[in-house]
Amino acid sequence: MAKDKSTKIWIKHHIEDPYVKLAHQKGYRARAAFKLIELLDSEKINFKNKKIVIDLGSSPGSWSQVMRERMILPDGSMNGKIIALDMLPMEPISGVDFIQGDFRDYDTIEKLKKYISNQSVDIVISDMAPNLTGIASADSARVQHVCELAMEFSVSHLKNNGVMIVKAFHGAGFSQIVFLYKKFFKSVVEIKPRASRANSSETFLIARELKQRLLDF
């Protein structure tokens, strides 16, 4: 009964959430779109030149929708490429290429290389989060592992002046994640967007300009 009550409370808060309502109005698939919008604006990430963007853990697709808005030209063509990857299916988005698969797998990476013609990437975005258990030590280890996987992918595929945006969570292990990112990137900024729920420990790291590759570490 207690679980049913808490579920009903969550649903009520979700329905009444202003960002949920705004997402419906603007056609975004999730309220998370507004987190990325604030991150891009606050860090003044520009899209003047053609960009190659990778969206890790993209489903349901709201972050890819935002990137498409930033990259679409008046004639309807794209100022670059957006490749979304997820193990879950994702409804198509015009101008976004989708690969269903695990980005750690060889076959998925080979498909990605074909999409980008073996070029380096300008921006990697990741709103991925692990399934949490409620056990603090286990959850912090899972969060750290996801952040490390995203970083390893980015360090392998980004241009030297590339940008990475990744979701993390404050708590045990967070300082170690930041420390690790700072080993590989010249700039690492922490931001909690206004669209992030007040009771959530999530925060986002914006990492810029590679200092070294994994092979150099």
Results as ranks from 00 to 15, higher is better:
residue 7 T to Q: 06
residue 213 R to V: 04
residue 161 N to G: 13
residue 185 F to K: 06
residue 193 P to T: 06
residue 14 H to E: 07
residue 60 P to F: 08
residue 168 A to K: 00
residue 189 V to L: 15
residue 217 F to K: 02
residue 65 Q to G: 04
residue 60 P to T: 00
residue 211 K to F: 05
residue 14 H to F: 09
residue 149 L to N: 03
residue 60 P to Y: 00
residue 47 F to Q: 05
residue 18 P to T: 00
residue 9 I to Q: 07
residue 143 V to M: 12
residue 2 A to K: 13
residue 162 G to F: 01
residue 119 Q to L: 14
residue 162 G to H: 00
residue 30 A to L: 03
residue 47 F to W: 03
residue 167 K to A: 00
residue 170 H to G: 02
residue 106 Y to S: 06
residue 122 D to H: 11
residue 91 E to R: 11
residue 138 A to S: 15
residue 103 F to K: 10
residue 213 R to L: 14
residue 99 I to C: 06
residue 74 P to I: 10
residue 126 S to L: 15
residue 9 I to E: 11
residue 3 K to E: 11
residue 193 P to S: 01
residue 130 P to S: 12
residue 134 G to R: 09
residue 22 L to A: 05
residue 123 I to T: 11
residue 50 K to T: 09
residue 179 F to Q: 12
residue 137 S to C: 02
residue 88 L to A: 13
residue 63 W to L: 11
residue 85 L to T: 10
residue 148 E to Q: 08
residue 3 K to Q: 08
residue 145 H to N: 08
residue 186 K to D: 02
residue 215 L to H: 10
residue 56 L to N: 12
residue 56 L to M: 07
residue 47 F to N: 07
residue 1 M to D: 02
residue 79 N to M: 13
residue 60 P to N: 13
residue 143 V to G: 08
residue 64 S to E: 04
residue 178 V to D: 14
residue 7 T to A: 09
residue 149 L to I: 13
residue 139 D to Y: 09
residue 121 V to H: 10
residue 17 D to V: 07
residue 160 N to D: 14
residue 158 L to W: 03
residue 205 L to R: 07
residue 216 D to I: 09
residue 138 A to E: 11
residue 179 F to V: 02
residue 196 S to G: 04
residue 146 V to T: 07
residue 203 T to C: 15
residue 15 I to R: 14
